[in-house]
Structure formats: structure tokens, C-alpha cells
């Protein structure tokens, strides 16, 4: 599983495809409240692009781009964005994740504040799902061995 493929065709096609996959993932996250998609789906597509990189370029090169520690940090960071926006609504005096109250600090009408608030939550969910997907695949491909000699 940890063997690096030396096949030029697979590596070259993956290098072409990965930016488009990531762009599509961002589109799915951003368009979540207008069309099918959203934070979870976009995060999974974004995680799949990193998994494709790991499969084609091997574990050692993938660790440079996204290590286990970074994946853990990103997953916590995504949950922090999600719950932070929820708690901000709570502090401003409405229910948890009730984005209408965000209009007082964003200086927009409540309908637009709802749209922006749910976009922020989608971004947080997307980051968390991407990092957790990558982390699970990382654990499977290393066979459960914990990385010891990382910073």
C-alpha cells in the first residue's frame, strides 16, 4: 500500500485532474444553498482529491502536502468555524445557529445575513470533512501505525 507508483501516465493525469477536482469541490461548497451539494459533499470531493494525490504520488510526498498533524488541525479548525458562528449567534441574543442576528455585525439585511452565515458554516463543515476523510485514509494506508518522528 505504501509503494510509490513510478508510472508517468497515472502521475501526469492525476496532476491534470487534481486542480479541477478541487475547483469543483469549492463550487459545490459555495453553491450549497442554491443547488444540490453543500459542505459535506464538497468536503468529500476535496478530500478525494487529496486521496488521489496520496494514491498516485505515494505516502512520503503526500505527507509534505498534508501531514497527519495538519489533518487533525484542519478538522478541529473546521469544527471551530462551525461552532464559532453558532455561538456568535448565541452571544448576539438569538438561538444557536440562528443567522438572522448576524445582520447587526455584518451591517446587511437579515436575509443576506442568513445566506452569509450558512455559507460560513458550509465552509467550516467542508474543511472538517476534508481533513477527516484524509485522516481516515491516511490511517488505513499506514496500517494504523502512529507517526512518531514528526515535528
Amino acid at each position: 500500500m505504501t509503494s510509490v507508483t513510478d508510472d508517468i501516465i497515472i502521475r501526469a493525469v492525476a496532476r491534470i485532474m487534481i486542480p479541477f477536482i478541487q475547483l469543483y469541490a469549492l463550487y459545490v461548497i459555495m453553491h450549497g444553498h442554491h443547488s444540490p451539494g453543500g459542505g459535506f459533499q464538497g468536503g468529500v470531493i476535496l478530500g478525494a482529491s487529496f486521496i488521489l494525490y496520496l494514491l498516485t504520488h505515494g505516502l512520503e510526498e503526500a505527507k509534505i502536502r498534508m501531514s497527519e498533524i495538519k489533518a487533525g488541525l484542519f478538522s478541529s479548525f473546521g469544527v471551530l468555524i462551525y461552532s464559532g458562528i453558532g455561538l456568535l449567534c448565541l452571544i448576539l441574543g438569538s438561538n444557536y445557529l440562528d443567522y438572522g442576528k448576524l445582520s447587526t455585525i455584518l451591517k446587511v439585511v437579515p436575509a443576506q445575513a442568513r445566506s452569509l452565515g450558512i455559507l460560513g458554516v458550509e465552509i467550516g463543515v467542508g474543511i472538517a470533512v476534508m481533513a477527516v476523510m484524509f485522516s481516515i485514509f491516511f490511517d488505513i494506508s499506514t496500517g494504523g501505525e502512529l507517526p512518531e518522528d514528526e515535528e
Partner: peptide, 16 residues
Amino acid sequence: VFMFLAQPTSTHAISR
């Protein structure tokens, strides 16, 4: 276009 890129590549990877 992306199908045309990805499908022969995956076939190649599986056969290899």
C-alpha cells in the same frame, strides 16, 4: 472531457 481523461487512465492503472 474529464471522462475521456480519467477512464483510459484508470483502465491502464488496473491492468498494470
